[in-house]
Design a protein around this nucleic acid. Structure first.
Lengths: 258, 258
DNA sequence: GAGACTCTTACAAGGTTCTTACCATCCTAT
DNA sequence: ATAGGATGGTAAGAACCTTGTAAGAGTCTC
C-alpha cells in the first residue's frame, strides 16, 4: 500500500474549514491528468480543500474525452503520460474548437527545462516542476484562473490611472509626471502600478513581494525598500518628502492620491 | 527613595534579548528534524541569528510529538530519519487536523533515487538539496513563511469603524476626525482600534498590554498611560475632556461611542 | 478638608525602522 | 566578449517611535 491508502484512511477533509473559492457562485471544475496515483490523490485532496470540483484521469486519451464531456475550467497536465503525452494533448486541445480556451498548467519532472519552453509555446498557461508543493500548485491554479477570467471579461491591461499631475499608463507602460515622461524599469513600473491601483491601502514589504515579485521569489524584503527608493527618485518631485509613495512607519508603504 | 527607585533597578527590559523578527511582534517557532548533530547545530545557529525560536529533534516519532506540543510555525524535515522517515512524517502531518497547515521544508540528499522520490515528496512546501548553504536555507524559510502568512493574514483586516465624526480604517491604517486625516503610529493605531472594537467595555492597563502589546511583553503598565495620552492628543477635540477614550477611575479605560 | 491614591503631562534615553549610498551579480544587446 | 542597465543585497547614519521616570494635577475616602 502506498500513499493513497494512508491518505484515504486519514482523510482530513472532514475536519477542514472549507474556505472557499471566494464568492464564486458556482464551483469551478478542474481536470487532473497524471498516471501516478499518489500525485492524483494529493492534488485532488488539496484542490477540493480549496473548494474546487475535481475529476482525474490517468492518460492522455482519457484527458481528451473528459475535456469534451465535462468542459473543465482548468486542466492540470503531466507531461509524461502513457498513450498520448502531455505535449500532444496540449497541442490537440489548442487545435480543437472546444478546448482552445481552457487554461492548462503543465507538470514537468525536474531537469526537463526544455519542456517548459515547448509547453509554453504550445499554449500552456503555466508550468510547475516536480517535486512541487501542493500549496504552490493551488496558488498557481488560482493565479491562472484569475488571469484568464480577467482576460475573458476584457480587463486585459488595467485602466490608465491619473492622480493630479501623475499619469500611469499600463498599456504603454509609461509614467508621466507634470507632462514629462519618466522611464521606469519593469519592477519599478509594476510596483508603482500595484500601489496606485490600491490607493490608500497599506502594504507591508512581504505583501508587496508576493504581489509584485510573485509567489516564488526567494529574496529579502529589503529589495522592496531599494525599489521604493529608486521609484521615488524618479517619480517624486521631492523624494525626501514623498507625495505619492508614502512610508507608513513600522508597517510598510501606501499610495496616497493627490 | 521610594518603591519606584527600586523597581527601576530591576528594569526587565534591559535583560531581554531584543532580536527582531521583522515587524512581527511575536517570535516564530521552527522545528528542526535531523539525525545528524552537526546539521542540527548549524541550522539552529543560523535560524536563531535571524531571530527565530528553534527546537530540534532527532527522529520522526519525536517530530510528531514535538509538533503536537509546540505547534511550530514551520518544520525543517530531513528525509532520511531513524524510526520514521521524513516522507512518512510529512504524510501523517498532512493527514492530521493540527499539522495540515504547518509549512514543511524537506532536506533531500542529492541524487537520491530522484525519480522515485519525486512522486512521494509531495506535500512539502519547499525542498532543499544537501549539501546546502545555511544562507540559502534561511532565505527559503523566510520565503515559505512569507507565502503561508500572506495566505492566512492577507484577507482579514477588520472592518472600518465609524463613530460620529471618528473614522477608523484598518486597511489604510488611518484615522479621520471630522474629515481631517490624522497620522497615528503603530501602537497608537492598534490601541485605538482595539478599544473601538469593544465599545463600552472597560479594560485595565494589564489587559490592554496583553491584547495590544502581546502576551509576551514584559513592561510597565505606564506605557499604556503614555500611549493613551498621545492618542487623545491626536484624536480628541479636547484631550482634557475626552469624548471617546474615557478614563474609568481606579480601573482603566473605555471606548465610548458617540 | 486632609491624606492617599490615581491619573495626566512633560521629558529624556534607548531602541527600532527607514533612508541613503554603495557594491555585487545577472541579463542583454552591441 | 564586453559594456551597460536592471536587480538584489548590505552597512552606516538619520529619523522616528517607544518606553520609563518624575513632578504636578485631579479624585476619592475618611
Amino acid at each position: 500500500m502506498g500513499i493513497s491508502g494512508l491518505l484515504a484512511t486519514y482523510n482530513p477533509l472532514t475536519y477542514l474549514p472549507l474556505l472557499s473559492v471566494r464568492n464564486m457562485a458556482k464551483k469551478q471544475k478542474i481536470l487532473v491528468v497524471d498516471d501516478a496515483p499518489n500525485i492524483r490523490e494529493v492534488v485532488e485532496l488539496y484542490l477540493r480543500r480549496e473548494g474546487y470540483e475535481v475529476a482525474t484521469v490517468t492518460d492522455g486519451a482519457a484527458a481528451l474525452v473528459a475535456t469534451q464531456r465535462d468542459t473543465p475550467d482548468l486542466i492540470i497536465l503531466d507531461i509524461m503520460l502513457p498513450r498520448l503525452d502531455g505535449l500532444e494533448v496540449c497541442r490537440r486541445l489548442r487545435a480543437s474548437a472546444s478546448g482552445a480556451g481552457i487554461p492548462i498548467i503543465m507538470l514537468t519532472a525536474k531537469g526537463e527545462e526544455t519542456d517548459r519552453v515547448v509547453g509554453l509555446e504550445l499554449g500552456a498557461d503555466d508550468y510547475v516542476a516536480k517535486p512541487f508543493s501542493p500549496r504552490e500548485l493551488v496558488a498557481r491554479v488560482k493565479a491562472v484562473l484569475r488571469r484568464t477570467q480577467a482576460e475573458s471579461t476584457g480587463v486585459d491591461t488595467g485602466p490608465t490611472l491619473e492622480f493630479g499631475s501623475l499619469l500611469i499608463d499600463p498599456k504603454r507602460r509609461t509614467v508621466t509626471v507634470a507632462g514629462r515622461q519618466v522611464d521606469l524599469t519593469v519592477k519599478e513600473f509594476d510596483l508603482l502600478y500595484f500601489l496606485a491601483r490600491h490607493p490608500g491601502q497599506v502594504f507591508n514589504r512581504e505583501q508587496l513581494l508576493d504581489h509584485v515579485w510573485g509567489y516564488d521569489f526567494y529574496g529579502d524584503a529589503s529589495t522592496v525598500t531599494v525599489h521604493v527608493r529608486r521609484l521615488r527618485e524618479k517619480v517624486e518631485p521631492d523624494p525626501a518628502q514623498p507625495r505619492w509613495i508614502v512610508t507608513v512607519w513600522g508597517v510598510g508603504y501606501r499610495f496616497e492620491e493627490g
